[in-house]
Amino acid sequence: MLNLSNDMAILSLIAHASIIVKIVMGILILASMMSWWYIFVKMFSVRSAKSQAEEFEREFWGGTDLVGLYQRASSGQYEPAGMEKIFEAGFKEYLKLKSRSGSDIGALMDGTRRAMKATFQRELDYLESHLSFLATVGSVSPYIGLFGTVWGIMNSFRSLTNMAQATLAQVAPGMAEALIATAIGLFAAIPAVIAYNKYTAEIDRLANRYESFMEEFTNILQRQAVH
């Protein structure tokens, strides 16, 4: 009981854990690493998508010439993303269909909208990539940790069978080391769930923004096609 402080040091607890518990801890730490990596990656990409959308909307509604915008986007000097990419795809399709004679306005607008829709889907897919991993880690890693804990506690109780006099001191280290698995599982799960919810909401809002831009842009193109 007196050397409890030595036995309870976290490193020795981890080192003394049984192999199954160690594997569980390894899986969980890996999952946690990956999920935090994705959390930060998503943080950067969602933030940049937002700022790009804002910038493009400001330019688009600021009265800039549509052709100029298109030429800049398709110049290849940089990779357009998000809203600009949707605009580029739609305008490209519009110009293609318009240069072909004999197409009516309905077909022209349908083609343009389809092109924009496809790019929109692709953009959304890009933004939502890895989110499912965060959801999985958030929902599964507590169970993995719990499994490690149950296994560890089971073992520490099994070691009591040969003891004539069972005391709490004999089970305590085993339980503590088993509970570390749950702690790691929770550490992996909580940020993953929070990040998943946050990014899903943010991407939803971005998608709404893209969609309304698409509608407005379609209207503008239709007005131009009629004239």
Partner: peptide
Amino acid sequence: EPGRWPAALLA
């Protein structure tokens, strides 16, 4: 995606 290495470092 942008910032993969900074993200790894932060993790």
